[in-house]
Nucleic acid binder design. Structure first.
Lengths: 114, 114
DNA sequence: CTATAATACTACTATATAGTAATATAATTA
DNA sequence: TAATTATATTACTATATAGTAGTATTATAG
């Protein structure tokens, strides 16, 4: 990573920025089980129409989802399953950290009653 | 990922948010080769002192770096090498995407002179 | 062609935060 | 103790963007 140029690093940062919003992760979760149109994503996530459209556009521009119009509606599909690997990595890391913190609290507790 | 609760998903989003800033990735790059103090990170990255301190604090709170004071200065170390794996994954994905776009442009070019 | 339904876009507000200057804090040295 | 050095904190400005209401666009049905 240290050999990455500033420009490349900026692109990596931008990619993470796309994934750094709860609503967008919820949209991605909604798409995980398969292609969905905007209305379906709205139902699943509870987000507003304009908001879902905007987030899907951002995800499409980042190459994370693909848009394929069908009739009057627009279906979106996960184009980049990598994101789920990323999320799982982060998730397991967060779990590990919580366990460590929990153990530290236990050790502090032990010290109170020697 | 679809089975993740909203709360867990929010934590994942927060983790990505920490990594979604160019300056913070630069700070992490500076630390990749080993423990550094704030002044050293300032020199390597060219960022201001208050700014570096702030970013390091954010990284420490996220459990990505560790702080260990030594005398009058504070040294920081990568605590979570996972971030470099994440960055490499994203980076290779971005490269793949650029190649695809390049190929599409070439195909368009072919069509101009049949 | 008109009406309807689904999606996209525009303009706006509210909020979060990166960067910075000034200051505070803490450790070392004279 | 006073001066110095390194880091942290505070207060502020500027900028980016999430969410939303209203509107525009596009495709289908009648």
């Amino acid at each position: 990573m240290s050999q990455l140029s500033t420009a490349a690093l900026a692109q990596v940062a931008d990619y993470f920025k796309v994934l750094s919003e709860l609503s967008r992760l919820q949209v991605l979760c909604a798409l995980k089980s398969g292609s969905k149109n905007v209305s379906e994503v709205m139902e699943i996530t509870g987000l507003g129409q304009a908001n879902v459209s905007k987030h899907l556009k951002i995800l499409a521009q980042a190459g994370i989802v693909l848009r394929h119009p069908k009739g009057v509606s627009a279906y979106y599909t996960i184009a980049d399953p990598l994101i789920f690997d990323l999320c799982e990595l982060v998730c397991s890391r967060l779990e590990t950290r919580l366990q460590e913190q929990s153990q530290q609290l236990q050790q502090l507790d032990m010290l109170r009653q020697p």
